[in-house]
Write a protein that binds this DNA or RNA. Structure first.
Lengths: 208, 208
DNA sequence: CGCCCCTTTGACCAATATCAAGTCATGTGG
DNA sequence: CCACATGACTTGATATTGGTCAAAGGGGCG
């Protein structure tokens, strides 16, 4: 059981590649780039920022007591993450691939929100969309078979990536930990969807 | 597959047993009592009220395309439910047992919230606790075995009911649909927990 | 080029779903 | 008051699915 944890790469250090600062509505924006696998924030760490994915993809997860990892969400380009009411992050966030994020200071955002009803409303609706995603993910146990789950996952990614051909930056293990399956089962399910003609090779094999 | 749906009782009509009105902070409070199995609101219906459980218990669920039912949450005494940002309810709500709820008009609440920062903050934190529950439930697929899932469920109910002996108003099927198991598996898991001495008969067999 | 990591695939096994029977409590009508 | 129907639960036998263990491609990067 703990093998899963043991053979996971040590968290990488932050790549200080990109660093830009801008002022927008008195909210400080900072960009940061993380390399593949790097931790953006850890579970229970003080939540001092919220984040937006500028480029790349992020996974947020919790480790369970038995060493399993449950991924709660993938965040793609444009998505906001790290937003929660509490003082501390409830999940760990890692870059799935080399990823650039915008950081927004929690405090400064809060200040603006209290003065500006529009910002407050936006915060509220961001929180709501987080909730809706969580609720959708909650429906997963109802999706019984592995093929159904994987198909639902692909459908979600397809919808969200929006673009022509969908890219799947995350590994089989990531998908498995998102769906509550093993990576072998995910692989088999993808194969079966293949033979069923639902997928073209290009749409799965990371076209870019 | 559809048998599951077919053999489910038609929604009962509302029992107009209790009806009381009070004025509190310019928000209209109305009480309503539903009998066991009665629908409180349906998925996709306009969300004109939010609710608080005064007595009894409520389940909120979605029907999946194949006729399966996924219960998203149980709401016990004191819990607020039906709260979401959108115009329409995303789940169906039903009384698990004879249940009395307080209704609060969405509009009037919104009016108060915009004037009163405290009310707004309360709304925000209620939404957050909803989100946290959903996130916790999202971790379910990680809990592999049926016994683990049922134990986690009991633990949750124990924590929430708070009282001395816990009552489980919901049926095995409800629990199953909450945990993504079958009712037989839930029954077996409860039996095993029994033999393991984790449960006393009284704590499961609805002491009241 | 060769190593490493990710993925695929296979064989086997354990766990849950499914199908089915039987118990128990409750309620109903003769 | 009893016979019977009904619904919720438990328990058993069997089938199916996904997990586990293992081996073998295949692609990228030093």
């Amino acid at each position: 059981m703990f093998a899963r944890v043991a053979d996971r790469r040590k968290p990488n250090t932050i790549d200080d590649i990109g660093f830009a600062s801008a002022s927008h509505q008195t909210v400080n924006l900072v960009e940061f780039t993380y390399r593949k696998g790097a931790e953006i924030y850890g579970e229970n760490e003080p939540a001092e920022h919220i984040y937006q994915v500028k480029r790349g993809a992020v996974r947020t997860y919790k480790m369970l007591s038995d060493g399993r990892r449950q991924i709660g969400a993938f965040h793609l380009m444009g998505d906001i993450f790290g937003l929660n009411n509490g003082e501390r992050h409830r999940f760990t966030a890692e870059a799935v691939v080399k990823t650039t994020v915008r950081l927004i200071e929690r405090k400064s955002l809060q200040t603006v929100a209290e003065a500006d009803a529009v910002v407050a409303r936006n915060l509220f609706s961001m929180l709501t969309s987080n909730l809706e995603h969580a609720e959708d993910h909650m429906l997963l146990p109802g999706r019984k078979t592995s093929v159904e789950r994987v198909a639902a996952f692909l459908s979600e990614m397809d919808r969200r990536a929006g673009a022509n051909t969908m890219s799947l930056p995350m590994s089989r293990r990531d998908i498995a930990d998102y769906l509550g399956l093993t990576l072998e089962t995910v692989s088999r399910a993808l194969s079966r969807l293949h033979w069923a003609g639902v997928l073209t090779l290009s749409s799965v094999k990371k076209p870019i």
